[in-house]
Design a protein around this nucleic acid. Sequence first.
DNA 1: TCTATATTTGACAGTTTGTCAAATTCTCTC
DNA 2: GAGAGAATTTGACAAACTGTCAAATATAGA
Lengths: 224, 224
Amino acid sequence: MPNKTNARQEISGAREELLRFAPVAEAVAILLKPHAEVVIHDLTTQTIAYIANNLSRREVGNSSLADLKDIGALDTDVIGPYRKTNFDGRQLKSITSVLRDPAGDPLGLLCINFDIAPIEAARDALSLLAAFQDGGAQPAALFRADWQETVNAAIADFLGERGLAASALAKDDHAALIEMLEQEGYFSIRNLVPYLSRLLGISRATVYKHLREARQTKIRKTMS
Amino acid sequence: MPNKTNARQEISGAREELLRFAPVAEAVAILLKPHAEVVIHDLTTQTIAYIANNLSRREVGNSSLADLKDIGALDTDVIGPYRKTNFDGRQLKSITSVLRDPAGDPLGLLCINFDIAPIEAARDALSLLAAFQDGGAQPAALFRADWQETVNAAIADFLGERGLAASALAKDDHAALIEMLEQEGYFSIRNLVPYLSRLLGISRATVYKHLREARQTKIRKTMS
DNA sequence: TCTATATTTGACAGTTTGTCAAATTCTCTC
DNA sequence: GAGAGAATTTGACAAACTGTCAAATATAGA
């Protein structure tokens, strides 16, 4: 931390430091133009410090991101890629890198949001043409012998969408994660419950409790 | 089969009948040019009656196809689509229609072989670009809540590769099917064994027997 | 037809699944 | 920081599922 005269100076120092990444952001945005936006978040003020190729209609100075406290707990400096939905419904593939000061404290985030909708559309068109069956041939190849990886991928996806960090997730999230897995049908995999309970560090009984709740809300939804 | 007057007439009659489909074969081949070949098989002589846009380097008069006896048992007149490998390794998407005489007896087959390699290559390139993770994100989306459909797709795939028809498969095939499912990891789906035994019309015990064998050959392979 | 092989049947022990009540821990509020 | 209320763990349990087995039966090939 360079100068300590007062808080305001520290903040503007952080912003200045962050803006050194602006050309990088610009370069990435141009490379992928017009499909990607690059945003630099200032963690000291919780605002947006820079935007290249604005897709999400946010502006410099806007407050950004909800929960950033968790980032300190991160083991890596790269988060994602994870899926994000733009205000207009487009699917974005997002990846975030953590920008730290010399002391190693998180200063900001550089977030690349890549609009993959057109790519997915093209891929799907080709898929359809190449597909056997009515389009259902791929699962066979993609259903891994190693179902744990499949589950892990689903969990990683979930974590990516919500914020982050592997094992350090609040117990409120457990219920949501389990509900998601249930809705995607993962519990017809053998031994998933004990595996999950070990993974999340909670008891089997709790997993079953969340499961029961998830199934009941599902029923409620079905009836309404 | 260089035969007597009687038979020869019958045979040439069949061929003539089949050649009426030649323009259709030609038209399909031209539509998909240069990616598809269309072959008309003569079932009465087990030879090739016509080829449009030859990809597989076979020629008219060549003997064709190994097992055609099964076709009589078919419930539909369209077989596939199923995957086929060309002599040069290219993957072909094949679909076959049965050509019958007015009495309803199978006379020939019209087989369309579509080279999907370039399409798959393009799709995969796009997939990679759109992919989350290192390419393993899709299973999550493709792992259906309805695992039965996933299994059915795998089985249908298997059936397509070997020849055909749903429930009418020899018991030798059971072992192969189960081995395939085991190797792809499908038996970590709950209740798969009873489901399969019902589906194949064999007993649970037999399924387990095949499973045991499949697992032992796997071990043998692993050790060698 | 007879023999050798494979399948079915029914029974069984071992696991896994899902639920429960009591004991414990956690989380608020005061 | 003490205590009420909620959530979680623990350990136990019945029910369901898994995998194996031996005897009875069916099937295929000589």
